[in-house]
């Protein structure tokens, strides 16, 4: 279990206290605005785009090459961008903060 925070487009913070597993599933289960997760988490739909807060980048890690290819043409992509279905939350990520990108 870990705490994670989503900062949505409107600037609001949403703290999830008991997060575990795919960050996309966590967002969808908690109705986080801007994360749809249409493809179920296999990296086809890019409706789960987040930007990881700089201080968490080292722990979460950068997008792999293929994930970068997917993100390349999305709106609001930067070096901190990830598809959150590709991020697994465990105790190591306790306290994680991500910004939800605008849906393309």
């Amino acid at each position: 279990m870990a705490k994670v925070t989503f900062i949505t487009e409107d600037g609001n913070s949403h703290l999830i206290e008991d997060a575990e597993g795919s960050l996309m599933d966590i967002a969808v289960d908690n109705g986080i605005e801007g994360i749809e997760g249409d493809c179920g988490g296999v990296g086809s739909c890019a409706t789960c785009h987040v930007r990881v807060k700089q201080e968490w980048m080292e722990k979460v890690g950068k997008a792999e090459e293929l994930e970068q290819d997917i993100l390349e043409f999305e709106d609001g992509t930067c070096s901190r961008s990830r598809l959150c279905c590709q991020i697994d939350v465990d105790e190591d990520l306790d306290g994680l903060v991500v910004e939800v990108a605008k849906l393309g």
Partner: peptide, 12 residues
Amino acid sequence: RKPNPHVAFGNG
């Protein structure tokens, strides 16, 4: 297959 960035449903 994962990631699977197929475009069967288009893109953008």
